[in-house]
Amino acid sequence: MRAPPRLYALAAAAALALAGTALVPAAAATAASAPATTTAPAAAGPAGAPSKRLAPEAAPPKLRASGNKLVDETGATRRLLGVNRSGGEFMCVQGRGIFDGPVDDASVKAIADWKVNTVRIPLNEECWLGLSHINPAYGGANYIAAVKALVARLEAHGITPVVELHWTHGRYTGGDSHCPDTEYATCQKPMPDAQYTPAFWTSVARTFGNDQAVVFDLFNEPFPDRATSDLTAAWKCWRDGGSCPGIDFPVAGMQTLLNAVRATGAKNLVLIPGVAYSNDLRQWLTYKPNDPAGNLAAAWHGYNFNTCASESCFDQQLAPVIAQVPFVAGEIGENTCSHGYIDRVMAWLDAKGASYLGWTWNTWDCSSGPSLISDYNGTPTNFGVGLRDHLKGMQ
């Protein structure tokens, strides 16, 4: 899911839908606030199995992959069920703050009240690393501190934080280019860059590596397949990086980023997306990176306007992956301001015991991009009602 800058957000809507990913309008910023002091229960276990919920004041579990399931320290099966909290990927690089809207205790409690057990936090590598063109008020140490504070608030509510790299450096002028006039991390790029992304993940892993309740999501929505018509070359680029066909900058592949994480000693669960904006996982198992920690999950994004948006496609393309590794739908949504599509997706994933996170917990117009809420008290949009009621009904 992309979060385009305000100046071209509305004009880009139709193009983004054709490209295979949803529009995210930008909104006003609010800085981080005080740490949380309350907790909320976690969401249900796989369909057909007993649920294991967090007791009040319980910390989120330390997750690991076991076969094709996620389990906690006791070996109990867990699922990641929740929402995305967009803002950290675009506010800082636009010079407007760090998060889009409040991330104080009250706002986190509102998320928890939906019976959410996981929140995915999109980030910007230039802001995390504090590059010179980023306002220091919103970058470097200040940015890292704000992210750490949000992670702490989520954990205080028993919620699993997923820290995810959304926007990255590198000028890209090929197919599906979204900001060809700049190398800065102001839009979604087809692949991570070798110049900064390994350093980003080294720093993130050192920051959160002692807390295995934090999940790492390596890169939002790769699309090397839009840069070349050679699908095999695209998947090799995805895994190995280097000089990739159609991409203007040196690429850091998924293996390189995973190596950067593991070199710090961090054993956290790592999510690795597919290609085609994370909608295509057909060769994920073939090109799966090697993980010495054995703690990987496949990540998929599903929207009503994607190519793989039907149960028949899910059965053909996703089921073989789900049979072998843990599976997390890191983003699900639709641009209809309704919930018919995600109702079907959640039902299919429930039957497989897989995980899913709705896009997004931001107060945008749900007809121009999938927005779950109309205010930060948790009032759902017509789209958000579907996710809220489904999660609450799983108790």
Rank of each mutant, 00 (worst) to 15 (best):
N117M: 04
R153I: 03
L231D: 14
G384A: 06
N290G: 14
Q188G: 07
V345L: 05
A34F: 11
S374P: 05
A58T: 10
P320C: 10
P46A: 11
A260W: 03
A205K: 02
A233P: 12
A205S: 15
A106E: 08
S86M: 14
A260Q: 00
E334W: 04
P190Y: 04
H157R: 13
S107T: 14
W235I: 13
E73W: 07
C308G: 07
D217V: 01
S177E: 14
P25D: 09
Y143L: 08
N135I: 09
A28Y: 09
K352W: 00
N268L: 03
T182Y: 10
H157V: 02
V270N: 04
A323H: 10
W364F: 11
A309E: 08
M254H: 03
A76D: 07
S229E: 10
A32H: 10
M191G: 04
G386L: 00
Y356K: 08
L129M: 08
S368V: 15
E155C: 09
D176N: 14
I111P: 01
T30W: 05
T30N: 11
G101M: 00
H169N: 13
E125K: 00
K62D: 10
A15L: 14
F208N: 08
L10D: 13
V163M: 04
G241H: 05
P102Y: 01
A32M: 08
H166P: 00
K52A: 12
Y376I: 12
H390Q: 06
A110Y: 02
R344I: 08
T74H: 15
L63P: 02
G294I: 09
H178S: 12
R262Q: 06
E331M: 06
F216P: 01
D389H: 03
N279I: 02
V116L: 07
N220K: 11
Q195R: 14
A17T: 13
P198A: 11
T264D: 05
R53M: 12
R206P: 07
A19H: 01
A13S: 11
R78L: 08
I111H: 09
K52H: 15
